[in-house]
Design a protein around this nucleic acid. Structure first.
Lengths: 138, 138
DNA sequence: ATAAAGGTTCCAGTAACTGGAGAGTCAACC
DNA sequence: GGTTGACTCTCCAGTTACTGGAACCTTTAT
C-alpha cells in the first residue's frame, strides 16, 4: 500500500512515516516502479506500535530497541523476555505517573463547582502532587 | 530554594528548569542578591506537574494551558472546568493507549518461554495492535 | 585563602519532526 | 488522448524542546 494509506492506518502524518523510513526505523518492504514506497500490513503494525511508544516519551532509540524484539526473531527468547520485561517496568512507571496526572486534573474538575464562583481550588491539586523519579529509562 | 534543589525535587534536569524559566513557563518567584533563581514550593509543584504532562506528549503550549488553570484563579470556574475536562479526555485517551502498549508487551513477555527457544511470537502482539486515533489533541 | 560545588549568561548542537518548493505519477473524467 | 487534482518523490530549511559547553561568578567547606 502507498505511504498515505499506511500513514492513515497507523494514525501518523505521512511526513513522519517518511522520516521513519529515512532514519531506518521502519522501512517499506519495497518500492513501486515509479519509486513509491510500498508498505505491508506488517509495517503498519510496527508504525502503530512506534506511534504508541513515542507518544509516551520513549525515544526513537528505545522504540528501535522495542522493534528489535520484533525484527530479531532469531535471538534467544530469554534475551527478548529480558528486554521486554525491562520496558514493561518503564511502562508501568509511566502508567502510575499518568494516573497521578489524571488524578490531579480530576480533582480539579471535581472540586470546581462549574458555576461562576471564582478561586477554584486548583492549588491543592498541585500541592498534593507527589515527587516521583523522572523517566530516565535507558 | 536554589535551582538545583528545585530541579531535584521536581525530578528534572537543572537545564530544563532554567529553560522553563527562560520561555516564561515557570518562573522563579525571585532572585537572590547574587542573581540566583529562587524557587518556592509552589513552583516545584508546577514543575512536577509540567514534567508529568510533558512526559505524556503534552506540548509546552498545552502544559502552559494546563498551568493557566492554576495561574488564573480568578477566571470563572466554569471556564476552568471546561478546559480541565477537555484535558482529562486527552489523558483518558492516552491512558487506554498506554494500556494497549503495555498489553502488547506483556503478551510478549508472557508468550516467550524464557528458554532459548527462538522465534518468539512477538509478531502476534503487533498484529493485534488496534488502530487508534493519534493524539492530535488541540 | 583556596578548592569544589553549584550558580549565571550565551551560544551552538541535537532529536524528532514539520513545512514548502519543485517535479514526477496515478486515477478519473471529458 | 489530454487535462485536472490528489498523491508521491527528494531535498532543504525551520521548529520545538531541550542539552552540552565555555567563560565567569557565588557559596560553602577546609
Amino acid at each position: 500500500m502507498n505511504i498515505g494509506t499506511a500513514a492513515t492506518a497507523a494514525g501518523l502524518p505521512v511526513k513522519t512515516v517518511r522520516y521513519y523510513a529515512d532514519i531506518g526505523l521502519i522501512s517499506p518492504s519495497g518500492r513501486t516502479d515509479a519509486g513509491y514506497r510500498d508498505y505491508a500490513e506488517d509495517e503498519v503494525s510496527k508504525l502503530i506500535f512506534v506511534r504508541r511508544a513515542r507518544s509516551f516519551g520513549f525515544s526513537i532509540d528505545q522504540a528501535r530497541e522495542l522493534l528489535s524484539l520484533y525484527e530479531d526473531r532469531n535471538r534467544s527468547s530469554a534475551d527478548v523476555k529480558a528486554i521486554a520485561a525491562r520496558k514493561l517496568e518503564d511502562i508501568d512507571a509511566k502508567m502510575s505517573e499518568l494516573r497521578a496526572l489524571r488524578d490531579e486534573l480530576a480533582h480539579l474538575v471535581d472540586a470546581c463547582r462549574g458555576d461562576n464562583r471564582p478561586d477554584c481550588p486548583i492549588i491543592s491539586g498541585f500541592a498534593n502532587a507527589r515527587k516521583d523519579r523522572p523517566s530516565t529509562s535507558g
